[in-house]
Simulated assay, not measured.
Amino acid sequence: MAEVATFATSDHLLVVIDPVARQTDGESVRIAKDVLSAGAATKVCLPDGPEEFARALQRRGSRRPVVIGDDRALARAVAVLHRQRELAGCALSVVPVGPLLGIAHALGVPAGAVAAARSVLDGAVRRLDLLVDDSDGVVLGALSIPPLEGAGPDAVPGGGNDGPGSPSRPEDLAPTGTWLRSCHSLVRSLVVPRPARGGGGGPAFGGGGGPARLRVEVDGDTLVDLEQPVEAVSVTPGGAGAAAVEVRPVSVGAAAVPLRAAGRRVTISGPDFRYRADTAVSGPVRRRTWTVWENALGLVLPG
């Protein structure tokens, strides 16, 4: 269960307004800013891109950071604070504004600019678990393979986590106007099948046309191995320092029973595969390990 702490309403706030929020719903941004300014001393920052976004958080001093933006802005803020190793001593707030709001709402942030801004002022800090991969990428909500199932054109495409485009690199997640116009074509390019390099992964996994074959290990125990083709894998922070892992094997005749496990460390390996972590699509990679960081994120939510 998440740890809860009360929070003083008189703290100074650094309000960072994501450019996509300003472009898509300026009225909600104005309302949120007015509510926050009426309840606390605020400094407002209007970054034009990811570098300014990161710099604002880095120079916040003793101010409590508040992000006005969508799931991508929230993920970017968490990534910046994580890379600075400042999440443990920071209480982050978000007012969800923009096209992608599912993660923020799933974490408990209220819908609507007024309700969310009031929770920033009157809420409590809840400590939440995160998934952190072996290239320092952070997952707030869920990890899924294949990445584009239900992911539409709003998914953020990226390269492997070891290079540009990784969700662990907030500078590559900046949604500018040009980025929004080109996003759809970039996502389409992700699903072009690549030649398999010694394995039978399907197109969504980066392979050549057969069912996906992955090895999924949870705390060193193998949940599924390469000889068992799978349709999908999902990993979510489950609370209490453990991740919930579900593997859906390929069904032959009758529906296959999902394989489930829980553990602190999850390793997925096999022929080239892509994965979706929150709003970002990464890969192809051949191996990736995610570890649960218990109570790593302090998020201000309604008390």
Rank of each mutant, 00 (worst) to 15 (best):
Ala5Trp: 06
Leu14Ser: 00
Val15Leu: 08
Asp18Ile: 00
Ala21Gly: 10
Arg22Asp: 12
Lys33Asn: 10
Ala40Phe: 09
Leu46Asp: 11
Arg55Cys: 02
Arg55Met: 00
Arg63His: 07
Val67Asp: 02
Asp71Cys: 07
Asp71Leu: 07
Ala79Ser: 15
Leu81Cys: 01
Leu87Asn: 10
Cys90Thr: 15
Leu100Phe: 08
Leu101Thr: 13
His105Cys: 05
His105Met: 01
Ala106Phe: 03
Gly108Phe: 07
Pro110Val: 02
Gly112Leu: 08
Ala116Pro: 04
Arg118Trp: 06
Ser135Leu: 09
Gly137Val: 07
Leu140Ala: 01
Ala142His: 04
Leu143Lys: 05
Ser144Trp: 01
Ile145Gln: 08
Pro147Gly: 11
Ala151Cys: 08
Gly152Asp: 09
Gly163Glu: 11
Leu180Thr: 11
Arg181Leu: 15
Ser185Cys: 07
Val191Asp: 12
Pro211Leu: 13
Val216Asp: 02
Thr222Cys: 13
Val224His: 05
Val230Ala: 04
Val233Cys: 03
Pro237Asp: 02
Ala240Lys: 03
Ala242Asp: 01
Ala243Cys: 11
Ala262Lys: 14
Gly263Glu: 13
Pro271Thr: 09
Ala280Tyr: 02
Ala280Val: 15
Arg286Gln: 15
Arg287Gly: 02
Thr289His: 00
Val292Cys: 01
Glu294Gly: 04
Glu294Tyr: 01
Leu299Tyr: 12
Leu301Ala: 10
